[in-house]
Design a protein around this nucleic acid. Structure first.
Length: 438
DNA sequence: TCTGGGGTCCTAGGACCC
DNA sequence: TCTGGGGTCCTAGGACCC
């Protein structure tokens, strides 16, 4: 906490959906829902037009379709999101060397560490307004909400209050009264489980939370979160903006369209995940000591098994072998809905483990690396960028039964026409920013 | 047909060591 | 013949965030 509102929190509004509306003029002003388009998908981001129908993040996609059947349902294009994010983060870096990204669309900036020495309220408000204008200009019209306050906690609350498309400054000294009436659930770290416990204690607002003693909160929520919450209830927060956070784990997981009970198929999936995880280790130039296998069962309960090596590795074969051996210890007879492989205990130097692990499980060679997984996903995912030899650039509006429907428009055009093609039409190809599988 | 994917942090128990 | 106590590492599970 400090006596100036010099911590800035920026949050891009409905980020993924806003990028889609920017690049797809026919969707501007309309409900857009980005998320997993498969049977078991959930909503990643809903545009404000879709939120009116009660659609929100983490909602199962089938529920979103029920609530807002006329929305555009898109698979998401992470390359495009990463590019927009890179531009915005670059702008924040101009304000201060102390920038702490929280995700693609959110970051803290410590303005007190930056070049501008004027930290009075008028100055930081002007800075925030300039920033928002620059963000919009450089990203093709994306809007950001900005919070300014004396701590991370208050800056984040402030940007929440500013949404969408606004600025909010909380003057130092007024923090406690600003948050008093807000729901306790507003506090980052208070999720559904914590809120349920608090409700039983009669807590609705942050002011109610202040009525509970520190000891009471610790008894109810444990030492760390009890203490933390008690502090935040009084708007006390000393956490520094940390621009040097290092990655602590890397993982890959996949929820299957249908549960899989075939151990060989699951082993092949584990191999595939292990290969991806290892390649990310190599790319990051780090090595991992611990391998974790995660399985989600049909009843949605999950199991994790981990093993710490006597060394550190970045080799796919090693990660895969450990993952397989952990999988062997699990009963997958009832089928699994998700399988994941992760690594942690990351270090900067290699120290290949001395193997006393099973050298090669006989008869278990990996020939199904391209696993016969029950998801023959089309490359024509809704929202994907495509190019047609005659009609030019567009995006996948929908596909099925051997056909793909494309709308031909880009960020720079007016809403464009729709045409349908055979999925194997040689004139049609994927564009630059193909959707990632969410 | 309920419920993603990629992370971080915390807790609690047991092993192990001094 | 009653058995401390602290610290660290590892494992498993769970809450939470975007």
């Amino acid at each position: 906490m400090r006596d100036t509102a010099s911590i800035l929190h920026l949050d891009l509004d409905a980020f993924f959906a806003a990028v889609e509306q920017r690049d797809k003029p026919s969707l501007r002003g309309k409900p857009v829902i980005v998320g997993g388009v498969g049977l078991r998908g959930v909503v990643s981001t809903a545009s404000y037009e879709a939120r009116v129908y009660g659609v929100g993040s983490a909602m199962p996609m089938h529920e979103a379709r029920r609530r807002c059947p006329n929305a555009a349902f898109l698979a998401g294009r992470f390359d495009a999101y990463r590019e927009a994010s890179r531009i915005v983060m670059g702008m924040l870096a101009q304000l201060s060397p102390l920038v702490e990204p929280l995700s693609l669309d959110e970051a803290f900036v410590d303005l007190a560490a930056g070049p501008s020495r004027d930290l009075d309220e008028a100055s930081v408000l002007r800075l925030a307004a300039d920033l928002r204008a620059q963000v919009s200009a450089a990203t093709g019209g994306l809007t950001a909400s900005v919070g300014l306050a004396s701590s991370k906690f208050m800056a984040k609350v402030a940007s929440e209050l500013a949404k969408p498309d606004g600025i909010r400054l909380v003057s130092p000294g007024t923090e406690v009264e600003v948050i008093a009436g807000l729901p306790a659930r507003t506090i980052p770290g208070v999720g559904p489980a914590t809120m349920e416990r608090l409700t039983k204690l009669g807590v609705v607002t942050i002011a109610d939370l202040r009525e509970l003693s520190r000891a009471e909160l610790i008894r109810e929520l444990g030492k760390a979160s009890g203490e933390h919450l008690h502090e935040l209830a009084f708007a006390r927060d000393n956490r520094a903006v940390n621009s040097e956070r290092e990655t602590k784990s890397i993982s890959m997981e996949d929820t299957f369209e249908r549960d899989i009970a075939d151990a060989k198929v699951l082993a092949a999936v584990a191999d595939r995940h292990a290969a991806k995880v290892a390649s990310r280790l190599v790319k990051a130039g780090v090595f991992a000591r611990t391998v974790t296998l995660k399985v989600r069962l049909p009843d949605f309960s999950s199991i994790s098994r981990s093993r710490t090596l006597n060394g550190a590795t970045d080799r796919a074969e090693v990660v895969a072998q450990v993952a397989r051996s952990l999988l062997d210890g699990l009963d997958v007879g009832q089928g699994v809905r998700l399988l994941g492989v992760g690594v942690s205990g990351l270090v900067e130097v290699a120290q290949e483990p001395l193997f006393e692990l099973e050298v090669a499980a006989p008869g278990r060679v990996v020939e199904e690396a391209e696993a016969p997984i029950s998801r023959h996903r089309s490359i024509w995912l809704p929202g994907a960028d495509v190019v047609h030899a005659e009609f030019g650039p567009g995006w996948v509006w929908g596909s099925g039964i051997g056909r793909v429907t494309v709308r031909f428009e880009t960020a720079q055009t007016k809403p464009g026409p729709v045409r349908t093609f055979a999925v194997d039409d040689p004139a049609l190809g994927l564009g630059l920013s193909a959707p990632d599988l969410l």
